[in-house]
Every structure is written in C-alpha cells, then in structure tokens.
Design a protein around this nucleic acid. Structure first.
Length: 735
DNA sequence: GCTGGAACTTAGGATGATGACA
DNA sequence: TGTCATCATCCTAAGTTCCAGC
C-alpha cells in the first residue's frame, strides 16, 4: 500500500497544496444524549441480512456487501468529535403569540370504581336495549337488525362501483396529453378558498386541575393551553428527554403571566396528571363512538374537505395536499434535535401569504382577520405559505400528489433518470479517471461520486450547528464516520460506514471498494481528526455544478432515482417467473422492491405487535398443516374404498377429497409466502421507494407482462398518483 | 464563489379506516 | 359481532436544489 501511495501521481504534498474549501472543524466532545440517540437508532439496523448487490467488476456498480449487523460498542462516541458549520439567524421565538386555542370538549368524568357508567357504556347499553326491543316486537326471533343483501343487491352495488370508477376515469384530467407551459409558468388560473385553520382553544373544565407542588393552580389561558400540549404527550418518550423538557419549560414560561412565572420554577414539581387523564379519556371516547356518531363526524370532515380541500387550476378541479394549517403544539424533531419540545405557535391569518390568480375569487380571511399578503405568482406551485417559528422555515400549502403540477414534475424526474442511463458509463469512466487526478478537489469529488453512485448516498448538504440533529450525507461525511479495513471477512479494501442520515436513520454498511478509492480515502484522512470533514474540498454545490456539466439536469439526487429504478428492473427480471401463481409473483415483486429499499436505506421501526402477529401466523400455518395431513389421509382412504368399484358416489367422494387437499395446499402456500414476506419486511419500508424512487412504468409494465392486477402492488393513492404511467405504459416499456 | 432563502421532494411515524377471523 | 391486525392516509420534519445578491 505504501508503495502504491508513492507511485500515486497525486502526491499528498501536491494534492494538499490546494486551499481547502471548508474550514477544519474544532474538536468537540459528543454529548450523552447524542450518544444515546445514536445507540437507539441501532435498533433500526438489525433488519435483513439480505445482500442484494452484485459483485464488483468491470462496469459493475452494485458490488458492496450490505451487511446490516448488530453494532458493536462505538468507541468514537466517547472520544472527541468536531463541529463545523455556519452560525444561523436568531430564532424568533420571542414573537409571542398569545391566544391559546385548540378544541376540547367538556370533560365527562368517568369513575368506574364508583360504579358510574361512562358515556360510551351508556350508549352501548342503549343500543342493546333498542335491539332487544326490536327482537321483542318481532316475536323474540333472534334476528339481526341488519338486513341481508340479496344477490341482486350485491350485483347492483358492484355495478355501481364499476360505474363510479368509469366516471372517475372519464373525469380525470389527462394533462400528460397536453402541451407544457414554458418560461417557468406553472398555471394560468388558480382559485381556492385559502387554508383551513384549526379550531380555537377550548379552556379546561373547572374540575380538571393543574397542580404545582401539590397545590391546585388556575393557569391563564395561554399557559394552560401550552401545559395541555405537554400533558397530551406524557405517554410519549419525548417528555422524558432532558432537552425536550428544558425547551418546553423555557417556552412555556414565556406564555405565563408574571405571577405564574414567579410561582412555577421547576418542571418536576408540575403535576399534569388530570390534564393527561382528560386527554386520554377524550381519545378513548372518540374510539368508542357509535357507528352513527362516527358517520356524523365523517360527514363533517368531508364537508371541510369539499370546501377547503380543492382548488381550480386551469379549469380543472384539483385536490390540495395539505390544506390545513398546522395546529400549534410542541415541536417533535427527530433524533437528538436540539429544538425538540419548543412551542410551535398558532398560525394566524396575519401570518399567511395567499397565492392565486388576480382574476380569481380571492379567498376571504376568517372573520376579523386579514391575510399577511395576497400575491399572484404563476411561477410557483404553492397556494398559501407561512413561516414557522421554531426553525424559521417556510411552510407551503400545495397540491396533492395526483395533481397535474406534481405529476408533471414526477414524470420529468424519471425522464431525467432515464437519460442518465445513456451516459452513466461515460460518467463512471470519468470519475474512475478522476480518482488519479493531481487535484485533491477532483479526487475527492470522484470518491464522493463513487459512493453516491454505488451506495445511493444522499448529497449531504452542510447544516448549521445547534439548529438540527447531527446527521450527514455523502459530502458532509466526517472522518469519524468511516473505518478503513485493509482486509475484512475475506475481502480486501473494506470501508465501514457508520453514520446517522436523514431523519437520524443509521446507515451502517461494510463495503469493499477499489484499491484506488481505498488509497484515496487513506489520503483524505491523513492528519485529520474524527470530527474533520472527510471531503474538505467538496460541497454539494460544486458537486452538482460538475454533474450538470456532464449532463443537463443531472444532480446527486438523480443517481438515487436512477439506481433505484434500474435495480428494480434488474431484480424483477431476475426473480419473476411467469409460471408462478399470483402470491409467488407478488413475493418476487416485493423482493425486488426490498432490494431497492435496502439500497436506499429505507427503514422503519418494527411494528409493535410484530412478534405476536408472526406467532399467530405460525400457529395458523401449523394448524393448516395438520388439516392438510388429515385431508390427505381421508383422500387416501377414499381412494382405497373407491378402488375397483364402479359406485359413482365413491368416485364423487374421491373428487371432493382431492379438492379439499388442493384447497388446503393452496392456503398453506399462501400463508407461508405471507410469513416469508412479512419476516423479510420487518424493518424495511417498501413504500418510500415505491412512492419516490421507482419509475412507475416499470411496475405497470411488469404487472401487464406477468398478468398481475395492478391493485395488488399499487393502492388507490398510488394508482392516482401514477395515473399518467398507468395510462401510457405499454408491455415493452424499458426504463 | 459564497451565503441565505425560497421552493420543492423525500421521509418515517401517528392516526384512522377497513378487513379478516374467532 | 367484537377484536385485532393490517393497510391507507395524514402529518409534518428533514432533506435537496436552485437562484439572487453580494
């Protein structure tokens, strides 16, 4: 290795003579909470041991071994780390909003111990009595109050459903058959009702009290509202975290009156028990509503959706994605977010900017209020926006994923990714060459690109220290995030990655790389400490600038889309078999999908009831096996009895038993396939890649070719979102 | 070339709705 | 019919990219 380094055309001295673009970070110790956060995310990484990558070779990219193994104690966590990053604008939490609001029905106190009934049990009793009355009137016949549907009625319902579907299809805006606007124009006419505001806060009932130091304290409304936000979260782990509690307490005190502030000095002395109980009761009561009451609520919600959930865009009615203003509450940042627990303030119309056509009916602000601004910008897609107080970022009301604006952008995204296919070989050749460059910056860019291409890493923008959790992507990787192994598990030049990526999801992977990459990494790490940037002469802007010079529209993100889609296509080709039955074909599809999810590191927390549900399924499988054995025995017996006999009855029995065996076998297979699929999916989220990275035309074409109904892999939302692909994809589509 | 903000996509968890099964 | 599991949808945080202004 040393010799290789000597022979390297890029001597360290020469290469480092360039001025580093990024300042070296100063060492800083990791906090305990950071350490705990990272340890916690380890649970997410136990997932599949499945390795779906090809071996590295000429032109092969997917060569790493994606080993997700139980992590060992990370010594880095107790050593020093370095910080970097820019200082940011001051937070504006001081812009105090008062009006504490949020709906709360009057408390119905439930004292089961005292023998009192709660509302829901009373209601159930009433229903029961009603039913019994019906029974009596009908002469004590044990009949159901629900009328059984006749065959004709079932048929009619089915026909209605088909008709509705056809109607929907007829009404669908086939925007993909129209010309696109130019010069950044997104729409020509836009009309909407403005966003929907959450209801005002309803004060606590008199019998629900907050206690401080054991004494009841009547809080002012603003303080009471914020106290309730905390009380509602008491069952959540958040409220046990020191950072969350401190941030909450600090912001809560800002909402208090002077007197309250002087009295309430210690969060530990606060008792939110009654508030918490009231909240739980409310949730429980909501769950126990009768069918009729639920229907009333549903209709009320539908009314809101009908009124606020749609807009008119260029003469077409389009669904809005998030027409509701985010309600106030406590900020739930992911991982070890330094701002978790801060108060997310109530948004008023005076904070909201409306965007619509000049010639449209301008939405009216709620009574007694006015909008911050009304503008008519046709070059953007948002309908309303506001700035949130915790991070100072903009929030937007935008259209639903099935809208023209979103669909067009999505289609374009996959077309750019397909375009990459035509030049990816040249780009790979180029960055392989760049690994030998005399310029350190060029070498770093080449290695980063190698990772982005091979491992589907995100670009990794720089982040501001203290503003967000400590997460990284490719360009922002630090020395402490990788470990180099000359040899590991019979493989040479292995890079071990261990870092927190987007949403604090841990990325852990051991990847064999080419000698040249390995050697470069050693070079980049020379004379650096754990907290220093691995790629100190690279940032996402310069990387993307370079990429766009290689292909118009090419950015780091495109590689993720391209590699996800091409992997799906390859895997489907490899795994699918026309002779399989539908459940087996679906298992193949899911496995291909899973390969992508593993590549993109899409993880989820295992469902809470996972073990129990697997045990239940296994029990069912065992029981079905017993049934099958029994059915087989019966078939054997029936055959024996029918042998040599011309009695038609006996032959019928044999046929019957044969069918029973067949049915049992089919059910057993289905269950076994389901168990395998579920187990393999335990910690892998398939939906993210399906929704964002996989060209839908690959899936549509696969369904057509494999004769699998599309609704087996795409639910209604996905079919709507990808209507353009469903409509235009032919059997022979190739990504 | 750097910085910060605007505009947009991507992401996992929470919640509500629906379906399967005893 | 009630319960439980699963699926679909909602919610909003956390990314990426682009661009204007210096």
């Amino acid at each position: 290795m040393e010799n290789e380094l000597k022979d390297d055309p890029c001597s360290s001295e020469e290469a480092f003579s360039e001025k580093p673009k990024k300042m070296k970070a100063k060492a800083k110790g990791k906090t305990k909470s950071q350490r705990e956060g990272k340890e916690k995310t380890h649970r997410k990484m136990k997932a599949s041991e499945e390795e779906i990558m090809e071996t590295e070779g000429s032109g092969d990219r997917r060569s790493h071994v994606n080993v997700k193994e139980e992590p060992k104690e990370d010594p880095d966590f107790v050593t020093e780390k370095k910080g970097k990053k820019r200082k940011r604008k001051a937070d504006n939490t001081d812009g105090l909003l008062s009006s504490a609001e949020a709906p709360l029905p009057k408390k119905k106190k439930k004292k089961v111990a005292d023998g009192q009934e709660n509302a829901s049990t009373a209601k159930q009793k009433k229903m029961k009595e009603k039913k019994e009355k019906v029974k009596k009137e009908e002469g004590e016949r044990p009949v159901s109050t629900k009328k059984k549907k006749t065959k004709e009625e079932i048929e009619a319902a089915r026909a209605l459903k088909i008709k509705k579907k056809e109607e929907e299809e007829k009404q669908r805006w086939r925007w993909w058959e129209e010309e696109k606007y130019e010069n950044g124009i997104k729409w020509k006419f836009l009309e909407h009702k403005g966003p929907y505001f959450p209801p005002a806060y309803q004060p606590l009932p008199d019998d629900v009290k907050f206690y401080y130091n054991g004494e009841p304290v009547k809080l002012s409304l603003p303080a009471e509202e914020v106290a309730l936000y905390f009380a509602q979260m008491l069952d959540h782990e958040y409220t046990t975290k020191e950072v969350f509690r401190n941030n909450f307490f600090k912001d809560w005190r800002k909402e208090m009156t002077l007197e309250e502030r002087q009295l309430i000095m210690d969060l530990k002395k606060c008792d939110f028990g009654e508030l918490h109980a009231m909240h739980k009761e409310k949730v429980e009561a909501r769950k126990n509503l009768s069918k009729e009451e639920k229907l009333v609520n549903k209709e009320a919600n539908q009314k809101i959706v009908d009124e606020y959930g749609f807009c008119v865009l260029d003469h077409h009615r389009e669904r809005i994605g998030n027409f509701k203003i985010e309600p106030p509450g406590l900020f739930r940042g992911r991982g070890d977010h330094p701002k978790q627990g801060m108060l997310k303030k109530r948004i008023r119309p005076e904070d909201v900017i409306i965007n619509c056509s000049k010639e449209s009916r301008i939405p009216e602000a709620p009574a007694g209020h006015k909008w911050k601004e009304v503008r008519h910008d046709k070059t953007v897609t948002w309908l309303a926006s506001w700035t949130e107080n915790v991070q100072g970022s903009c929030k937007y009301v935008m259209l639903n994923a099935n809208s023209k604006l979103k669909g067009e952008k999505d289609w374009e995204k996959y077309e750019v990714a397909r375009k990459l296919k035509t030049c990816v070989d040249a780009i790979r050749t180029q960055y392989q060459e760049d690994l030998k460059s005399k310029q350190m910056g060029t070498r770093q860019r080449a290695v980063a690109l190698y990772f982005i291409d091979k491992l589907a890493l995100r670009a990794g923008n720089e982040k501001e220290e203290g503003e967000t959790a400590d997460t990284v992507g490719c360009c922002s990787l630090r020395v402490e995030h990788i470990t180099l192994h000359d040899a590991l598990d019979d493989q040479k030049c292995v890079v071990e990655f261990d870092f927190l990526g987007k949403d604090c999801i841990r990325y852990y992977n051991k990847v064999p790389v080419t000698k040249r990459v390995f050697k470069n990494l050693k070079l980049f790490m020379e004379n650096k400490q754990g907290g220093d940037d691995l790629f100190d002469r690279l940032n996402t802007a310069s990387l993307n600038k370079h990429l766009s010079s290689l292909m118009p529209g090419l950015t780091a993100k495109v590689f993720r889309t391209y590699n996800a889609s091409i992997t799906l296509q390859q895997q489907l080709k490899e795994l699918s078999n026309m002779k399989d039955n539908v459940p087996e074909k679906l298992l193949s599809y899911n496995r291909a999908n899973r390969a992508v999810a593993v590549l993109c590191n899409h993880q989820r927390a295992p469902p809470k009831s996972f073990d129990q549900s697997m045990a239940n399924l296994q029990a069912k499988i065992d029981s079905r096996k017993e049934q099958l054995d029994l059915a087989k025995k019966e078939l054997k017996q029936a055959k024996k009895e029918a042998k040599g006999s011309s009695d038609n009855k006996l032959l019928v029995v044999v046929e019957k038993k044969k069918k029973a065996v067949q049915r049992c076998e089919e059910q057993l297979l289905k269950m076994e396939v389901q168990a395998t699929d579920r187990e393999e999916n335990k910690q892998i989220a398939l939906s993210t890649s399906k929704l964002n990275y996989l060209d839908p035309r690959i899936s549509v074409a696969w369904c057509k070719n494999m004769e699998v109904p599309l609704d087996k892999i795409y639910n209604k939302t996905l079919r709507d979102k990808f209507a353009w692909a469903v409509d235009m994809t032919e059997l022979d589509f190739v990504f």
